[in-house]
Design a protein around this nucleic acid. Sequence first.
RNA 1: GCCGAGGUGGUGGAAUGGUAGACACACGGGCCUUAAGAGCCCGCGAAGCUUAUACUUCGUGCGAGUUCGAGUCUCGCCCUCGGCACCA
Length: 763
Amino acid sequence: MTSKYDHTRVEKKWQEKWEKSKLFNPNLKEAENPFYNLWMFPYPSAEGLHAGHAFASTGSDVFGRFMRMQGRDVFQPIGYDSFGIHSENYAIKIGENPHEVVKRTTKHYEEQMRSFGHGYDWQHTVTTSSSDYYKWTQWLFLKMWEADLAYKKNATVNFCPSCKTVLADEQVMTPAQAGKEPKNASGEVVENVGELKVCERCGTIVEKKDLDQWFFKITKYADRLLSGLKKIDWSERVVTAQRNWIGKSEGMLIKFEIDGGGEIEVFTTRPDTLNAVTFIVTSDEALYNEENPEKIGEFTGKYALDPLSGKKLPIWKTNYIAPGYGTGNVMGVPAHDERDMEFAKKYHLDIVEKEPDEKLWKLIEEKGWGKRHTNYHLRDWLVSRQRYWGAPIPMIDCPKDGWVAVPEKDLPVLLPDIKDYQPEGTGKGPLANHKEFYETTCPKCGGKATRETDVMDTFVDSAWYFLRYPSVGDDNQAFDPAITKKWLPVNLYFGGAEHSVLHLMYARFVTMVLHDLKLINFDEPFPKFFAHGLMIKDGAKMSKSRGNVVNPDEYVAKFGADAMRMYLMFMGPMDGYPDFRDTGIEGMERFINRLWNIFNNKPELKDKSVVYSKLHQTIKKVTDDISNFKYNTAIASIMELVNVIQEEGMDEAVLKNLCLILTPFIPHFAEEVWVEVLGGKFSVHRESWPKYDAKLIKVDQVTIVIQVNGRVRGQILVGSGVANQEKQIMALAEKDGKVSKWLEGGKIRKVIFVPGKLLNFVV
RNA sequence: GCCGAGGUGGUGGAAUGGUAGACACACGGGCCUUAAGAGCCCGCGAAGCUUAUACUUCGUGCGAGUUCGAGUCUCGCCCUCGGCACCA
């Protein structure tokens, strides 16, 4: 008898029951065994969640459900990164107020996530664009200001002519990294952009502008951001990306006297090559041009004096020295640096061949010519944006008192609902057109003053959201100290590797600052971070232009959330680039139907030993594999078990265990089977994860592989009692027809025996 | 150039130094069916040999090495992907 499993009815039924029974709402104050399971919150886009989101979020949800069955009080919140350019650009595109757009898109996201069957605590969601959240983002800014980690200064910054705002260094990348076609300011696609970089969001080639901007002093934490990487358990590629981005270089600052007065200081990582220096180069903004790989220079007419030899070293202005790194001056050592060599040849400068001398490090220090110094690639974090859709920076400019922070009691500085929210690209944000917003009084002297009209980068919003979740609803503080102490740091953070140097570094920085302000008792927010991979479709990256974007809703409707979930987890390793195929999910639908028939028809148990051995092997394997995020092999081993059950039958205990190990992957199906078929108590999600019994794993008969000179020549089946007896196995093997012919004419020199597995004759 | 991760059937992918290709998808054949679908059974790396069962050889990017035994370890290359980069 076969009957079809009705996923639509079953999934809806249990989703409602779970919601009503508060299965996913742990008691945040009293939970005894907290486990904070977090997936990076998405920004709500118009298209809705795509299949990549479904893949990643399911990976996180499976682990959460697994931990719940391990007896943990799992807190699994979700929210929306709804402030910022991404949401605003879309609102502008469709000519609708961003407030309205966000309301609609977040609602759609919630429906989708509920339909996937994820166990989120919907009572603790966060929407970064709502004032009860951004009030505390502004509070965070005030903390930065108090700690002397926020400052405004004029700087040469990256400016996106399309988004009409400045960008942080981390938001500027090559077109390939951004995954965008490079465009010019008019929005036309440009073919050959050379070394030019583009805006992370829209792919437009960025410009350089000198503007007054707000920064967070992340460079002060460069060394801690680097050393902290050693104590956290993160995917290696993410650690490497962050290490590269921070870019530590240890070297020396060396001062050269200038002939005729003054001095010039260089930074070098190779003081041991000071004996081969022949010129000094200094960066020049006018000559500097990232597009031009050709080195050009101008002699300044001045000479520096080589402290070692006293020789005169010509000082040249060049385009090949990056301004703003080190001192902007470099000693030219053509013998040990290809770039210096190229420059020296072009302008006929001296080339001195001399072996590097390690003793120079010490000598330079002793003589007082220079001192040890560490440089970082990391720059301060530019947080102001000349846009509308962000948290207003809570600062007031007073003609008398200078920059004054908005007092905490006056937060939030509300973002007014205005009609002209489009950016203008004048270097000022839309709020600068609204007197009613910026005209205010100085909190210090009470005189007339103006508010800052820039808003904060969206990455400030997301740099602390994980702290807010457990304290959602608390109007008096950003996060409750007792609850924070109980739930943080996050036990498992699940997310994409594309945030390696953006969100993940900013969040670490903010956490370190709050720790140093004694507001929290940990300085790494995510001791364990798992970087999931990217899903592809039919062998190609998903994209609208290819027309191969997988819409998860269609698949959930057609095959059910469970089939979708289990297929997504079965496609390949969680950190790889698994390929989604329509035929694959059809196969998973068939597998779930097979399961349904097994649970309902209960084929009678034939060989208890074989089935129980397989069952306990499988429990062990699934437990280990889920713990290591190897969901694909966990599911494969469950399939093997099912194949054995179909052959050998099963009993009630086998069925119950099978149901339990299926629960994290196909939660609705498992609940239906547990309650309606096996007569268990609601809910299967509150049941304990099964334990395997090592004694039962043992089988009656064992296959021993027989090798001759390391090549497989036969196999013999022996009772498990004999499997570890070398002599007996050897005797059996020598008698074996297949093996004996390979032993003829040779003398056995040595026998290698692996108990229970293998016997190898060396002849 | 530097740092990191990889390279296994038609495809996705499995393999604590111990039977390479688990588990699936696709494909081929068969049963069932008026038919389709679903379901069930069999085959499925390549070559050789055989009526057949079996057997043999080759095979994890390329070339060496260690080992009784290498996809796995070592050395040298090639290629792919990711990060950093005129950063001194």
